[in-house]
């Protein structure tokens, strides 16, 4: 595989993994939780480093995943203590992120734990750290991690598809039918955390948020069926990743940032020209309807 192919593969895996949890989050009106979790991952990484004094991949992964789930728990706690939802999210993630930044600048300055890097990501470095596993050689570490998370996400989605579907569209009915709504909530938070962590190192927090929110939002404007929404958002996410890479290469600029920009571009297209929900299409259709009424 070439250098370019590895980067595109990594970004595509990230985008599909993100768009799966993204569809569920967008439908549950919890999109901003992904923003919170992807930021607090930093605190988890730093804490794991301070405790183990190493940059061991697994310890970092576990630390960050715990931080992600704790974020969700804290937001829930503040919420039930009477703090309005948006403020609870805003307070928790900025507080935890600020502590993360302080810890990095106090204890981990000399280590490869760059705060800026954590936000912007550096896809260009991915193909250089490879790990051999299961007899397969030369596969980048990031690809392994994201593939595993992607598989976990897909399995959980298939196992709990009916439950996720019902509790996303009608949580009260779901609760009345005895579906474990709270368990599903934290399962989704867990999926968001591991996805954010695995993607984080490769693409940075900002692309994680963009991939979680934008492609599902785009798909939401294109279809009325949940199954199709998953497929569409995965396709849009991969398209954004590929086109983002080539634009970044042409302009010689940040790859993750360009991919995030492309997700926004595809959303804008859907917002304007979606056959069912597009603003322009709706306007044209309205004009057409008035026209035919006049004739009649």
């Amino acid at each position: 595989m070439t250098y370019t192919m590895w980067i595109i593969l990594t970004a595509s895996l990230v985008s599909v993994a993100c768009s799966i949890v993204g569809v569920l989050l967008v439908l549950r009106k919890m999109a901003m939780i992904s923003d919170a979790i992807s930021h607090t991952v930093l605190l988890g990484l730093v804490s794991a480093f301070l405790i183990t004094q190493s940059l061991d991949g697994l310890a970092m992964f576990i630390g960050a995943a715990i931080a992600g789930i704790l974020t969700a728990v804290f937001i829930q706690l503040l919420n039930s203590a009477g703090v309005q939802a948006d403020a609870a999210i805003g307070i928790v993630f900025t507080f935890l992120f600020a502590i993360g930044v302080i810890l990095v600048s106090m204890f981990a300055r000399d280590v490869h734990l760059d705060v800026e890097h954590s936000i912007m990501g550096e896809l260009a470095f991915i193909p250089w750290t490879t790990v051999d596993w299961l007899g397969i050689e030369g596969v980048p570490q990031a690809v392994w991690m994201i593939s595993i998370v992607l598989v976990i996400n897909i399995i959980l989605l298939f196992v709990f598809y009916k439950e996720f579907k019902l509790s996303s569209f009608d949580p009260h009915l779901a609760a009345a039918l005895g579906i474990p709504v709270v368990f599903l909530h934290y399962l989704l938070m867990g999926m968001t955390s591991i996805t954010a962590v695995a993607s984080f190192d490769a693409v940075g927090a900002i692309l994680v948020v963009a991939m979680i929110i934008a492609p599902p939002a785009t798909a939401y404007l294109l279809t009325e069926q949940l199954g199709k929404m998953f497929v569409y958002s995965a396709i849009i996410a991969v398209l954004s990743a590929i086109s983002g890479y080539y634009f970044a290469a042409i302009l010689d600029t940040n790859i993750a940032g360009m991919m995030a920009t492309m997700t926004g571009f595809f959303f804008l297209l859907a917002f304007l020209f979606s056959p069912t929900h597009g603003v322009v299409i709706k306007k044209i259709r309205n004009r057409f309807t008035t026209y035919s009424n006049d004739e009649a």
Binding site: V26, K29, M30, A31, M32, S34, D35, D86, M120, I206, L207, V209, A210, I212, I213, A214, A217, Y220, L221, A248, L251, D252, T253, N254, A256, G257, M258, M259, A260, T261, T263, G264, F267, F271, H277, V279
Partner: peptide, 27 residues
């Protein structure tokens, strides 16, 4: 103008604009 909810719209604008910002900054 669409059925996008507020939290999704906020997250979308936030990440995409920041992405554009990073692109320009790196440039």
């Amino acid at each position: 103008h669409s059925r996008i909810k507020t939290d999704t719209a906020i997250g979308l604008v936030l990440s995409v604009f920041f992405g554009i910002g990073i692109v320009l900054l790196t440039y």
